[in-house]
Design a protein around this nucleic acid. Sequence first.
DNA 1: TGTTCAACGAGACGGTGCGTCTCGTCAACC
DNA 2: GGTTGACGAGACGCACCGTCTCGTTGAACA
Lengths: 207, 207
Amino acid sequence: MSAPVPDASRRSSRARDAILAAARELVASDGYRGLSIEGIAARAGVGKQTIYRWWPSKGAVVLDAVLALSEGPDAEVELPDTGDLRADLRTVVRATVDELADPSFEAPLRALYAAMITDADLTAAYRRRVADPVDSAKERRLRSARDAGHLAPDTDLGLLRELLFAPIVQRWLLATGPLDHAFADALVENALLVARAPASTEAETAS
Amino acid sequence: MSAPVPDASRRSSRARDAILAAARELVASDGYRGLSIEGIAARAGVGKQTIYRWWPSKGAVVLDAVLALSEGPDAEVELPDTGDLRADLRTVVRATVDELADPSFEAPLRALYAAMITDADLTAAYRRRVADPVDSAKERRLRSARDAGHLAPDTDLGLLRELLFAPIVQRWLLATGPLDHAFADALVENALLVARAPASTEAETAS
DNA sequence: TGTTCAACGAGACGGTGCGTCTCGTCAACC
DNA sequence: GGTTGACGAGACGCACCGTCTCGTTGAACA
């Protein structure tokens, strides 16, 4: 009944790296539609069983491939905190927009979303390994601003984060509008407007 | 080279209805993963060719199935406009949340999103037939409020619409938080805060 | 250094759904 | 009443699925 758990200490890192690289290359050239386990195995020079041994689904392979794009180790995310909230938010939100416009990020990430929509387990894994750490970092930065008096004391940091980033993902998924710095800046200005400290002009940055 | 366009005047509406109903039933019971053209054809009592004759892809069938859920004819969408912006927005945003929580809507819509993410043609068709009309209706309601002085004259109606609804879709897709009326109301309050008319207390509803 | 043993590359296997095709049937229009 | 094209049905070759065996290999431990 229980799975015959393989011995991770004997795992070939060469095979793992080749599989993730092959997945990235194939999804970039053929899209998620043309991505198959057999194709990944062939391109990586690996037996199919080596993939099935370590990953539960094609989507899980893609998740690891996406993670391998932006990590050394499982480094924890940290956002810039120069004290200038507007500038820091612009940096981060613009970077998000740029990342989604970069084909080498866009292709595997789109594939990952396609898999997640119909795979609740994969969605949970994505939240745990990607979304939660990133969201925490964003909220740390916002909390720092709130503590410094740059945001109203009763600001809902989670909601503010969603207002900053959800419209970006929405435009990206359905191509309902341009994904550029102007849009990023508009979202930042909106966030500052929503949650600005009530009686302060002092702490606000001028830019 | 050109497609041998079938004769629409001879199309069987019985077959069309049976196909869309079968697609809805199967996606509700088995999810999008288990949805196949062969399964739809078998359930509908229809030849596979009848599906391929009229739809370019499985996702296109699902799009029509979703559309058939909420239409008589291609009725144009109209939102409530009682003059009370807060109340009207709550109604609409809460209804959106409720719809995404209703399994009979949720299942085919999730299937449609899964298909759209990897199918730009289908995404364009969805925008044209669903998203654009709905978005226009939303912006008409917001414009009416702006004209009535309930929103600041320089309010970006499109951005406001995205701030109201994108966070909902985001939570729905990745299950990153509860989709309830409290969340809907928070989004409405945020929108009213962002775009409130500068010097007016008069026109605002009290609720 | 040698032994061990599970992960490895390779690929056969039955199963499923794909998209195309070819039938005979049927109903609408001429 | 003849023509015609959509219809239901299903055969076909193909791609990929997930499971299963093979030898082979190389890392861990004695």
